[in-house]
Amino acid sequence: MIEAKNVYFTYPNDVEALKGVSLTIKNGEFVAIMGENGAGKTTLVKHFNGLLKPTTGTVHIDGVNTTKVSVATLARNVGFVFQNPDHQLFSETVEEEIAFALKNFGFKEKIIKRRLTWALNLLDLTKYRKTSPFMLSGGERKRVALASVLAWNPKILMLDEPTIGQDYRQKEKLLQFILQMKAQRKTVIIVTHDVEFVAECSPRILLMRKGRIVADGEARKVLTNPEILTQASIVPPQITQIFLQLSDFQLPKEVIDVYKAREKLLNLLEAKAK
């Protein structure tokens, strides 16, 4: 469980990035943190793996105060995949990249092999195992970074903009993977601007603006509230935009996905035909 209490954080250059954030994320929850550039999203999640410590306030991970333990200890439980994969990758081959942390955590050779094969398969990277990460496309490098964190099986997984540079299929796979993690009672936290992706996976949304949380709730509620979204520089999902424009008909407003949209529209057309 992640518990933040009244967290303020100021960078050395005096930029106050967090201004009193309090939240609780339970084990097995799937949370999307959204908001405009510079809202403090990445700063907030860096508090969850101890990369940053609150200037005032506290963060507890499974009851442990993050100021009391090292980043290395926290990292075992909290995996973090950076926004820009180039900030994370350094090995000669994809295989070595993924095995690196496993070796560091002292896993046995046999387990390393198994985890490696599993992660390569899951992220469609098997054909690149001997390739240098820097030979790969932006989207593929992103997947290598993800694989290297997944391989050590952390309890809490944090992904900073996981869908950047990913095509539609990869996004579908990512979604399935997140659902699988959820089923295993793992906590998944994504920081993202990708409204359409969020509309498809329907997590709990934390909306941030200028260092504060301005909305906290299920996707269907938050993503259909245009006033609050605009404040956070987010555009409603396209399906929601259609329904907002048709608000003078007997249609619900809280629609974010294609299948619900179809159902509601067919119902209305049928009712009108009678």
């Binding site: 996004k171 399906i239 179809r262 529209l265 067919l266």
Partner: peptide, 20 residues
């Protein structure tokens, strides 16, 4: 091929199959 069809286009396709 795996192109991310815009959701409005997708909704149109689905409704057409429903003969709307």
């Amino acid at each position: 091929i795996g192109v991310g069809i815009p959701k409005p286009t997708r909704l149109y396709q689905i409704l057409q199959k429903d003969r709307v």
